[in-house]
């Protein structure tokens, strides 16, 4: 049997990248599916609730930050601040006129005075909004203790 001496096999060090394309495509598919256009980026501390239902896509948004600043969005464009309750009501009336079954989401800071929420709720009631969602985070067992 012939043995070749003095000839060592050199294996070049390398990172196996053949599966990289698959992983990248999987990540892209994940992001495309889970991608949500957030129409309102107001920073608020949401209240926590046990009961939570999915908010329909493209629901209209009314946000109230801790300082009481109200912003509105019809669900298609970025939210804009409004100056008075009448503006909230006319915005909501326009949205309801276009789609009477349009859902509204109120995204309010849990520390905001109830009075600010009450004015928004009153404006939405006056505009004949049918369904309102109060945006919240999941309450856990630890939160109740």
């Amino acid at each position: 049997m012939a043995i070749i001496r003095g000839r060592d096999r050199r294996i070049g060090a390398g990172i196996f990248t053949a599966s990289m394309a698959d992983i990248v495509f999987l990540l892209i598919v994940f992001f495309v599916i889970t991608y949500n256009v957030e129409v309102d980026r107001t920073q608020v501390v949401l209240p926590k609730t046990m009961i939570r239902h999915n908010i329909p896509k493209e629901a209209a948004f009314v946000s109230i930050d801790k300082a009481g600043v109200v912003r509105v969005s019809s669900g298609k464009e970025m939210s804009l601040p409004v100056g008075s309750d009448e503006e909230v009501q006319s915005f909501a009336a326009n949205v309801v006129a276009a789609n009477p079954y349009k859902e509204f989401v109120i995204k309010a800071d849990k520390g905001v005075k109830y009075e600010a929420f009450d004015h928004v709720l009153d404006a939405l009631k006056q505009a004949k909004v049918r369904v309102i969602y109060l945006l919240s985070e999941q309450k856990t067992v630890n939160d109740t203790q």
Partner: peptide, 29 residues
């Protein structure tokens, strides 16, 4: 191109709350 797309989605996607308490308002307020 794939990496650019991933970076774009990572930067623009926000983990947002999409659930809440619902309630129906009276039909004629």
């Amino acid at each position: 191109i794939s990496f650019l797309l991933i970076i774009y989605f990572m930067l623009t996607s926000v983990m947002s709350a999409t659930r809440g308490l619902d309630f129906e308002l009276p039909k004629d307020s």
